[in-house]
Every structure is written in C-alpha cells, then in structure tokens.
Amino acid sequence: MVDKQTITEVKVDELVDKAVLMKGQGYRLVQISCTFKDRFEITYSFDKDYELEHFRIYGERDEEILSISQVFFSAFLYENEMKDLFGVKIKDIAIDYQGGLYRVAQKTPFAPQKEEEEEAEHV
C-alpha cells in the first residue's frame, strides 16, 4: 500500500503567508529541497500527525525569494544550503552564511552552468 503524495504549487510571493498559515495550524517544517534543471523548483514539506504536506515554488535563475526562517527558525540551514549549492538567491535568512556554509572548491556546484560560462570554457 503506497500513499499518494500531492504537491501543491504556490506562487513565490505567497510563500511566506503560506508558511505563517502552516505554523498557525501546528505544522512542523520537515524539509526544504531544491532541484535545478532549466529553472529551479523548491519544495517545502510540512508534517502534522504523520501527514506530509508539500508546497512547491518555481523560479528563474536570478529570481529573489524571501526566506521563511523568520517563521520557521530551522529553515535557515536549508536555505543556506540551497544558496551554496544551487545559487538560489534568498533574502533575509535568520543566520546568513553568505555562501560559506559548505566549503566547496567550485561555486554553486549543483547548479547547471550558465551559458556564457560554458562558452568561456570551450574557448
């Protein structure tokens, strides 16, 4: 028996409101994950009584996203991680490492390379 998992799409500017709403209903932040192909998608998962709720936002490479760490304090680690590995621009994180959470040799290693960078490599 496999439970169905539904992912609700949310607009970028509605995200913080949604987080406040979830917090009010007594949900716990479980995880934030990011996938980056042509554009990035970030999924926020919340849990209450073993039920998971997923919310997903889509955004372009240079789009700015407001942090939810003012609502859920524990979000700061996930957001710094996304900033470091994918180069997602997130504003107002409670503790901002400015890209120094992971000591990586290459900047934003998980993000696909920008076109001009790829060209520069081929030259």
Partner: peptide
C-alpha cells in the same frame, strides 16, 4: 531520527535528483 529520501526519476537509468535530509541536519537548530 527521521530521515527523508527524495528521489526524482525521469524514465532513464540515471535519476534526476536524490536528496537526503538526515536527522542531524534538523537537530542542529534544536
């Protein structure tokens, strides 16, 4: 504690993304 595995597959033998959220990661704020 609770660990989360996120797997995204695209129908080929290589997966698009695997993400592991380990328990210590969420216990650091605690």
């Amino acid at each position: 504690g609770e660990v989360i595995y996120y797997v995204k597959a695209n129908g080929t033998k290589f997966l698009d993304r695997v993400r592991v959220r380990t328990p210590t990661f969420t216990n650091v704020p605690a």
